[in-house]
Design a protein around this nucleic acid. Structure first.
Lengths: 342, 342
DNA sequence: TGGAAGTCTGCATACGTATGCAATTTCCGG
DNA sequence: CCGGAAATTGCATACGTATGCAGACTTCCA
């Protein structure tokens, strides 16, 4: 038994006095093999420190048990949280993650090119753009794709997301209950549907209360802490009596930046001078320093739904395209909103 | 040309009027093939939407270009940052990440069992325990392991880490320069060398200034925001005049929790009433709300070193064991320490 | 012009496992 | 004790690519 030489199923077969097929069957659950034979094989495998080669196995079964996950923005804790959740769910189902990171808002095409080489069983894409051409390529070769929180109209891939418009509405209502009159928003990438939807739901609900969109101050920033801080400064660095009394940030990470600028740079009290709300419910939103009111995305349910759409339940099923599942988020009241005026 | 049937090198060969070998060579850089032939092959490949199957390729080359990364604590932004950095470095070198997450402080043995099945080219382990038995198994079969920031004495695997003791010393000196007299520490898992070293460096430096370890108040907590908050409460929820005037937290995430409890629950002013320092320099440490003084780990250099230890430079090299590389961190002065008394 | 050196190309095989099929054994009821 | 069904096993082959080797062809120089 040489070191640095991995034992193969043939080696194990020889030691156990059986055929290679028997070894293969011993490591497969639903194979017909005598219990006694399996035990002998496993013992021999143990002695040789044999580990089945999934690569070779994948070649013939055409399943790798690997799912590619492409993450667009590792700087946003929400996507880290999602990644973590995805990891747990997949590992629990005996699958592995092939991880790719792309720059925030960057294209995932380059990553997909590599993904396809590895014959993954599916692709999960968060917070990154994927060209339709690449999407079709993947679907045509039987590799399902699910977009996580990144709906693209007309796109061929399935999508699982939070109902962002609904969530925006929840925030608007909470603001109104808190007695807010003058509103402002910090939005994200204008091209991202996530941002658009969150704004739309918010604005629509305010419209029902009689506010025109023009009445709502607005600044756009990168979806980062710094982006939120910069947007807040641009929006509020003016005469104090022109200030809005409610600020909606389309995600928590920007809300943190905005809050810090409000309090530390502009001397505002939250929520007395200005109420603030975010979206996502990242861990930091619960920190004592922030206590940010926000909309929690149902991450676990979204992940479960995404895996279901990857057809990990029934095998060989036809790939469904252009599915769009929007799950409702939940308002989490903390300390950045005033209590409803009785 | 059927959909859902992936073209193979034979299909491409037939279309291009060459042998399968030629197709293989067309996709390999250093193969001897006529430029004109390669062009014809690539054109045929394009028509058939052919993508080389890395799984099949790996079977024969015995290299997957996949590196397993096992992350123990996705809740700590520092390890997320490290993961991101590792991802960039590997992708730039044409390698992929097979990601595994394990519970904080949990054992990576189960993950390793899967890793070995996939014939990865190397393993990077952060913030998780790996049994020596599993380590030996991996090394014996020629799969190099590098521990990232998790040194284990007597362990057989290579290790890359920040010089934690040195960093602890930097903090101690900064405190002394700031005129601190009464010290306290919030430490992490007593079994983790990371925590031990950070404490040792701190205590040693204070000893040089005449302080016995018994003079330093101490509480231990989980390496989380909540853990830091709870430890701070346990440590400081007493008569104010017994308070220390300097609090050292062995990592930033705990420092954030401690700061929040200090200010929001105990009404302390930082750094006037009490100075605070952390370790890691996570992104949140720079937030305006915290402005935490800390020691920055040289993440990029550590990652570069780790990849070098995986022998991705020269192939076929003998696996080195029990290497320990400690890179110095750098003090980042922010607002939680008092300026040196002149 | 001849031959040597160099450049391309195809043939054949190997990588390690899964599985259809046939052969063998075991098990039972009659 | 026999026939057939069921359980188990081995044989052979397939998965898709890389590469050593030998042959074919080109180039170049004497």
């Amino acid at each position: 038994m040489k070191p640095s030489h991995r034992a193969t199923s043939f080696d194990v077969a020889a030691l156990a006095g059986v055929s290679q097929s028997a070894v293969s069957r011993a490591f497969s659950q639903q194979s017909s093999i005598a219990a006694e034979t399996r035990a002998r094989v496993l013992e021999a495998a143990r002695q040789l420190d044999y580990v089945p080669n999934r690569i070779a196995s994948s070649l013939i079964t055409r399943r790798t048990n690997i799912v590619a996950v492409i993450v667009g923005d590792m700087a946003n804790p929400f996507y880290v949280q999602a990644l973590h959740c995805i990891g747990c769910a997949l590992q629990a189902r005996g699958r592995q993650i092939l991880l790719f990171t792309v720059d925030r808002g960057g294209s995932a095409d380059e990553a997909m090119r590599r993904v396809l080489q590895y014959q993954v069983d599916g692709v999960l894409l968060t917070s990154a753009q994927l060209s339709m051409r690449m999407t079709s390529r993947s679907l045509d070769r039987g590799v399902p794709i699910v977009l996580f929180n990144r709906y693209v109209p007309g796109h061929d891939a399935a999508c699982v997301r939070c109902d962002n418009a609904h969530g925006g509405g929840l925030i608007a209502e909470a603001f109104l209950r808190g007695g807010a009159r003058r509103f402002a928003m910090i939005t994200g990438d204008p091209g991202a549907t996530t941002s658009q939807d969150r704004v739309r739901g918010f604005v629509t609900r305010l419209a029902e209360a009689g506010l025109a969109r023009g009445d709502i101050a607005e600044a756009c920033g990168h979806s980062t802490y710094e982006g939120g801080a910069a947007a807040a400064l641009a929006l509020l660095d003016r005469q104090r009596r022109e200030w809005p009394d409610a600020l909606y940030c389309i995600n928590d990470i920007m809300a943190l930046g905005a809050m810090d600028v409000l309090r530390m740079r502009l001397g505002a009290a939250i929520p007395q001078d200005i109420q603030v709300a975010g979206f996502d419910d990242i861990p930091q939103a619960a920190h004592l320093s922030y206590q940010l009111t926000t909309v929690a995305q149902p991450v676990e349910a979204m992940v479960a739904e995404a895996l279901a759409l990857l057809h990990f339940d029934r095998a060989g099923q036809r790939i469904e395209r252009a599915i769009d599942r929007a799950l409702p988020g939940q308002l989490v009241m903390r300390a950045t909103l005033r209590a409803p005026s009785a």
